[in-house]
Each structure stands twice: as C-alpha cells, then as structure tokens.
Design a protein around this nucleic acid. Sequence first.
DNA 1: GTCTATACATTGATAGAC
DNA 2: GTCTATCAATGTATAGAC
Lengths: 215, 215
Amino acid sequence: MPRPADQTGDTRTRIMEAASSHFAERGFDGARTQAIADEAGVNKAMLYYHFRDKEHLYIEILSNNLIEIFSQIFPTFLQQELPVRERLLRIAAAYHLFLSTHPQLRALILQELAVGGPRLGDVLEKVKGSVPGLDIEQVFMGIRSLMDSGELRQGDPRQVLLHLLSLTIFPFFARPLLETIWGLSPPEFEEVMKDRPAAVADLLDQGLFTRQEVR
Amino acid sequence: MPRPADQTGDTRTRIMEAASSHFAERGFDGARTQAIADEAGVNKAMLYYHFRDKEHLYIEILSNNLIEIFSQIFPTFLQQELPVRERLLRIAAAYHLFLSTHPQLRALILQELAVGGPRLGDVLEKVKGSVPGLDIEQVFMGIRSLMDSGELRQGDPRQVLLHLLSLTIFPFFARPLLETIWGLSPPEFEEVMKDRPAAVADLLDQGLFTRQEVR
DNA sequence: GTCTATACATTGATAGAC
DNA sequence: GTCTATCAATGTATAGAC
C-alpha cells in the first residue's frame, strides 16, 4: 500500500523508510526509484542528492537493518551469568522476537541471499564499524569452553550455532512455501510459530526420539 | 558466464535451461528476456512463441524444478520398512543431497520466497498435477502414529517436520551470510556442510546438552 | 518455427533553475 | 535542499516476412 507523502521526519529519513519497504518487497532489481520517491513524498532527484545512486541507497538500508539486529542480539551471545541452557535459549528467543516484529528485515535479508549476497561484503564493513563487539570467534570460543567444562556435549561449535540459527530462523524464511504446501492459513501458521520456541527448547533438551537406554 | 548458443536439444528445452539459470541468479524482476534468448541461442521472439510471456515462462521453470525435487523426495516420507530414526535421517539426507547437487533449485526457491511467494499457488497446482502422491496430511499422520506407538516423543507433528527441514535446508539458504559473517572461505563452508548430516543426526539423537539425570 | 524490425513504456540518472 | 524537465538506455512484447 503506497501511502502518499506523509511528511514525518526529515527527507533523508523518509527516503530510507520508503526505500526499506520497497527493497524488502521487490528486491534491488524489482524496486523502482520512482515508487520510492513517491512514497517518501519527495522528488526522485532527491534520492540522488542524498545518496549517490540506487546501489548506495540499498547498501545503506541493508547495513542499517543488520546493525539494528546485531547490536541488539550480539550482547546475548556473550553474557556469562546465566546457565548454558538459558543462554542458548535466549539467543534463539532474541532472533525469534526480532524476526517476528521486523518482517521487513527478514525480507531484506532473503532478497540479498537470493541473489547470492553480492553486496554483503560492503555491508558487513559498515556493520563492523557500528557494532564494535561483533566478533564471531569469541562466540565459538565461548561454546567450546562450555564443551570443555562439560556443560555442552562435545562437537563442532559451528554446528551447534548452526543448529540454533536453523531451528529459529528457517521457519520465517520458508513461510510462504510452508503455508502453500502444508495448506496453512496465516493464522494457523502464526499458531505454529507461537509454539516454536518451546518446541525448539524441547528438541535441544531431549532430542527427537524416545530413550530406550542411557549412556 | 553466458555461453552463447550451444545448439543442444530442441529450442523449447534450451530456452528453459537458459531461463532457469537467469531466474535463479537474478530473480523474476532481475532476469532479462534478452539475456535468456542470447544464452539459449535463439531470438527473443521465440520466448513469446513457446511460452506466452515472461511470467508463464517463470512459472513453468519453477514448477518443473519443484516437481523434480518432490517426486524424488516424497516417496522417502512414506516408506514404512525402515526404523523411525533411519526414515527421518533419510528424508534429511535426501534434501541435503538434492540441494547440494542442485544449486539452481535452491536459488530459485529463495528468489520466490524473497518476494513472498506470489506465484506459489499457481506453481503448486502444476506440481500436484504431476506428483500424484503429494499429500502432506499423510506425512503428519505417519509422524503421529509413530508418536502413539512410542517410537517418537509426543508433540506436534508439524514441529517435528519443521525441525527436520530447518536443520537441513537453512544452511543452504543462509550460505552467503554465514560465509561473510563467520569469515569462512567456500572450501571451509563446504567442510561444515560435509559434517552437517552427522551433526543433525547427533542432535536428533541426543539433544544438545549433557545429561545429568534420566527420566 | 524462426527471424527482423519495431512499438511503446519505463527505467536510472543528470542538468540547471530556484 | 528541492524541484522541473529531460535524456539515453533498456525493458517487455508484438507484427509480419520468410
């Protein structure tokens, strides 16, 4: 729904908000500069004044969105006070909450992944500049030390993190496919998503199968 | 690399192959009919003779790809001879293998998900017409009966299937993001993916944590 | 079935007045 | 900073000869 020209905030901000929604819905190639300008309530020439061109605008948008999610979620990775189980579940919960409340971010990332992430390098530079503590090695080291202290089962820390991200993020990405193939209405899908964190916690706790014998 | 006009197969087939690769790499909006025609080694007008327009061509491509994966994977869901654990692991393995060997399919699905799947309805109609046994309810009923017989832990069958799909498919989708943020080279990522099925099996078997007590 | 030629709309982008 | 006016390039799609 392109709402025409509500004059809230300064021009630059309004352009970014409009661009965000268009890039999210149609991707870089599908988004139209004209439509962005219209929705922002400014002339098309303004895009090129405030940002160099479509590409720079896009990178600015994607960076800002990633900065927002990482600066909010990354601290969760590193906090040490809680028991392991709660720490991991909080990471999952943080992603779940963020993706639930930011459908635009989900679409934006999906669009970039779909074309193979050609601009992720540039984007990550900007993100690193704004989220200082972003160091994935620390996360892996943290997981490894939990394995050594016996709180987590031994294994590749990358696989553990991948488990967590997969279980949490995939349903958001695959939603249209799941709704179509599983024949779910949006409310039905929402219901599945509501139960998701508990189901994930249960899998991490117990695995999938009934237990015949114990090691 | 657009290879020019190798005259293998009939025109219609060559167009579809070229279109497949372009839609996969750039999406519906990003793909150019001219580029597709060039790569297929035919005139652009041929696209409109063999297919009605760009949209019909796209739907044809996406349907064919989904038909291929479903007709190959769906039988795996329903085979009853094997123990539960092996049945589930085979489903995961089937997806893993298929996505490993069909990078184009992965991209094609991702592109459609990115725009919210506006053509999935039409596509699924075509798929259902060509893969007769495609009935998701049977799968859920199968999972539920395994719960009732005590082989699987009780829970929502949809969450179980979602676990399986998430753990298996997500890494393929998120690859560019993971490589960039985790700082992995393609060979390093491949290595992680090689170990993936075993790591997933381990999670399903044991959960994530060390076991203090047993129920 | 395949091509040439072209219609017609829309695109991203800029020059220059205010 | 913001606008009007405009451009060259490129987009999808079609008409009609062969």
